[in-house]
Structures are given as structure tokens and as C-alpha cells.
Write a protein that binds this DNA or RNA. Structure first.
Lengths: 140, 140
DNA sequence: AGAGTATAGTTAACCTTGTTAACAGTTAAT
DNA sequence: ATTAACTGTTAACAAGGTTAACTATACTCT
């Protein structure tokens, strides 16, 4: 099983490139998409929510959110704690989410074409386990 | 099987971070390691060899190779075509290859701990197939 | 043999996306 | 009431990719 990382990583650049081309049509990139995706699927969120979920430092999230605000895909809503900035998708944010989501799913299908179901299944399940192990090592 | 990309990508940052910490002990990073790895496993190579294997543009490879030369891990050897720059590992390059290779394999084992063999096997086989599909879409 | 074309590598300028450090404003704790 | 902790922002930086333009060398082909 030597070479696991190498095999894993060799997929990364072609994949992220394709995703960025796809999202680029809507002036998005995967890093922006991640924010949209999170807010859509977790409801109104603070920057810390997003930051800690993806393990990305706050300044990076600040930047992404600012861009999404400029693009009017995301807006701030009032909250009790006035330190926090709570954001949610705007209507056009929702729209673009649906569109991109569909396109990404389509791409997923194309990429998994002709690959046996059971293999994909197994791979699919492996990722969370690996991430678990990666995190555990962290705390050790 | 929706969410395949997301699951895949959620592993990337923790993994590459760990690798970069590991390699950082030897003043390397994964991008430099890729060059060392390629040259070790493919014998003396030109920058174009490396560039086209990883689908990374030449200037990026130029930069990496220059760094490795400064670190004396890689050296140029004479070739017939005087446009080409053919490089191979130096002795200390070989040494550091062996060391890092061992460390990476060790990390691989730790990360795959307690994950059923058959799942890993399947995942392992899936990566090349996915890359294939990604590339085919390219040419279409 | 010479003109034009193709290829290898380099340099410079730039972009994206991450990081740290320092700070302001707000809330919580003692 | 002070002090401590937390949220978000800004600024400066780093890694690692890109494109465009260039030099030097090799190849092609009448």
C-alpha cells in the first residue's frame, strides 16, 4: 500500500483545476464555493464557524466573505452578539448555489464513469476515516 | 455518491500540511519532494520530463530545480542536446530521499491505521481511474 | 548551406490562497 | 470595574502556481 499519498495527490491538481474552470464561469473558485456551500448547508453562520470547520484561518475567510459580499451572493444579518458577523445567502446566492451544485454533480458523474460501484463506495467511505486519523495524530 | 469531491478534498489540506511539516525538517516541501521523487524513480531527467509528468508549467519546475541545486540535492549532468538540462540526484540527494521516503511510508501507515484492508485497496485503485477520466474529459 | 521553425530553459511580473502579528470593538468573568 | 477572552479586520508576507517574452540550441527542408 506504499504510494497511497502519491496516488491520492496525483488527482488533486487535475480535479481542482476542472472545478475552478467550472466555477470560473460564475466568477467563483473552489475556495469561494466552500463558503457558499457551508452557509447553504449550515444556515446563517459566523466567520469563525466557517473558519473552524475548514481549518482555515480567519483572515482567509474574511477575504472570501468580502468577495462574496461584493458579488452580492451573501449578506450580513443582524445578531445579538455585536462582535459576530452572521452571514447567509442572498437570493442570487441561492440561485448560483443550485446551478453550481448541479454542474458539480454532473462533473462527479462524468469522473466516476465506468468505475465499479463497490470501489467508489469504498473510496467514499475511506476519506472520513483518513481525515479522522489525520486529526487524531494532531492531538497526540 | 454525491459529495465525492467534497469528501476527497476535505482530506487534502490536513494531509499536505502534515507532509510539509514532515518534509520541512529537511527544508523541503511537497513540491520539491515531487521533483526528487521523479528523478529518483525515472533516472536522469530534463525539466520538460518533470514538467510534463506533473502537468506543471516549466517556470515552476525551473524554480524548484534551482532550489534543489542550491541545496546540493540535485546536480546537472552533461547531455548531447545542449538545450536540455539533465539532472540527477547527488549523494546527499539520495540520502535525503531514503530518509524522507521512510518517514512518508511511516506516516502512510499511521494514517491508514484501523482502516479495513479491502477499503484501502479499493481506494488505492480508484485514484488512477479517476485521473484517467479527468484526462479523457480534457481531450474531449 | 542557410532560412525558418520548433524546443528547452530562464526571467519577470502576476494571481490565488494560505499564513502570522497586531489591533479595535464587544462581551464575559471575577 | 477591570481584566480577560473572543470576533473580525488589516497589513505584510510566503508558497506555488500561471503567462508572456526572451535566449540559445537543434531540426527541417528546399
Amino acid at each position: 500500500m506504499q504510494g497511497f499519498f502519491r496516488h491520492y495527490l496525483s488527482v488533486y491538481r487535475p480535479l481542482i483545476t476542472k472545478l475552478n474552470v467550472l466555477l470560473g464561469e460564475y466568477d467563483l473558485s473552489y475556495s469561494l464555493w466552500q463558503v457558499i456551500f457551508f452557509v447553504k448547508n449550515n444556515g446563517p453562520s459566523t466567520l469563525v464557524d466557517i473558519s473552524s470547520h475548514y481549518n482555515i484561518e480567519k483572515p482567509s475567510i474574511t477575504r472570501s466573505v468580502h468577495r462574496l459580499e461584493e458579488m452580492l451572493l451573501v449578506k450580513q444579518i443582524p445578531g445579538k452578539d455585536r462582535r459576530e458577523k452572521i452571514i447567509e445567502l442572498t437570493d442570487s446566492g441561492e440561485e448560483i448555489y443550485q446551478t453550481c451544485r448541479a454542474k458539480i454533480t454532473e462533473l462527479e458523474h462524468m469522473i466516476m464513469k465506468d468505475i465499479p460501484e463497490n470501489m467508489l463506495e469504498a473510496a467514499f467511505q475511506v476519506f472520513p476515516l483518513i481525515r479522522e486519523n489525520l486529526n487524531n495524530k494532531e492531538g497526540k
